[in-house]
Amino acid sequence: MTSSFDPEGHEAATLASVLELTGARVLEIGAGDGRLTWQYAARAHSVIGTDSDAESVGYLMEDRPPGLWDRVAGVIADSQHLPFASERFDAAVLAWSL
């Protein structure tokens, strides 16, 4: 490994401690390549990760672990105009993107 982000797992631990995402329909804004997504997606009902950068969304889709193929989807979207129906999600995560 040549570089690593938060190998101590402080972000995942904090996320788990402040928000119960088990069974939740989650919208993640600024998901990028899914670095944060993979830390909670396994316990969510479903996750839609959005990013305005098409390349990042491509990485998110390509990097989905096999067990999450039907649970995580990436969508190219601008956070100012979200292409989703009203009241569709139980939780929204702004991942370093506000």
Binding site: Q80, L82, A85, S86, F89, A91, A92, V93, L98
Partner: peptide, 24 residues
């Protein structure tokens, strides 16, 4: 930013939770 937060409000179900994670 306010508009983006308003969009998130719209897409959240009643009682939904918004998590804002950002570097200081």
């Amino acid at each position: 930013m306010v508009h983006a937060l308003s969009e998130m409000w719209r897409t959240l179900a009643a009682g939904g939770v918004l998590l804002d994670i950002r570097p200081y």
